[in-house]
């Protein structure tokens, strides 16, 4: 059993603090589906570091995915070596709404 505390860095904002700056209109239906069973054999799990919204996290050796904070960049689809990411954009104009980018 381990309890990881955030190391005392120079006040880096956590990902949820960053995502909170954005405007979203989240769809009830996920626009990305992760076939997590394919992740078990994945050695590098590049999604964990590549996703700029930290939508992919590893918990107890398993990759858990959430789409709500997705920035819709498509990186996970490209870096996934096992074709585990069924990726699309949100429908109906939902998802992130950029204003100053």
């Amino acid at each position: 059993m381990s309890q990881a505390q955030e190391p005392p860095r120079r006040k880096l904002l956590r990902i949820d603090d960053l995502l909170q700056r954005n405007v979203y209109d989240v769809d009830q239906r996920p626009h990305i589906i992760l076939h997590a069973e394919k992740c078990e054999e994945c050695e590098y799990k590049p999604c964990l570091r590549a996703c700029p919204a930290e939508c992919y996290v590893e918990v107890g050796g398993r990759v858990i995915f959430s789409y709500e904070g997705c920035l819709e960049c498509g990186t996970c689809r490209v870096v996934c070596p096992h074709d585990a990411v069924e990726w699309d954009y949100p429908v109906s104009g939902r998802g992130v709404y950029y204003r100053f980018s």
Binding site: L18, R21, N22, A53, V78, R99, S101
Partner: peptide, 9 residues
């Protein structure tokens, strides 16, 4: 103040 955080390929 950070107004927005965005990503794109």
């Amino acid at each position: 103040d950070i107004m927005e955080y965005s990503a794109h390929m």
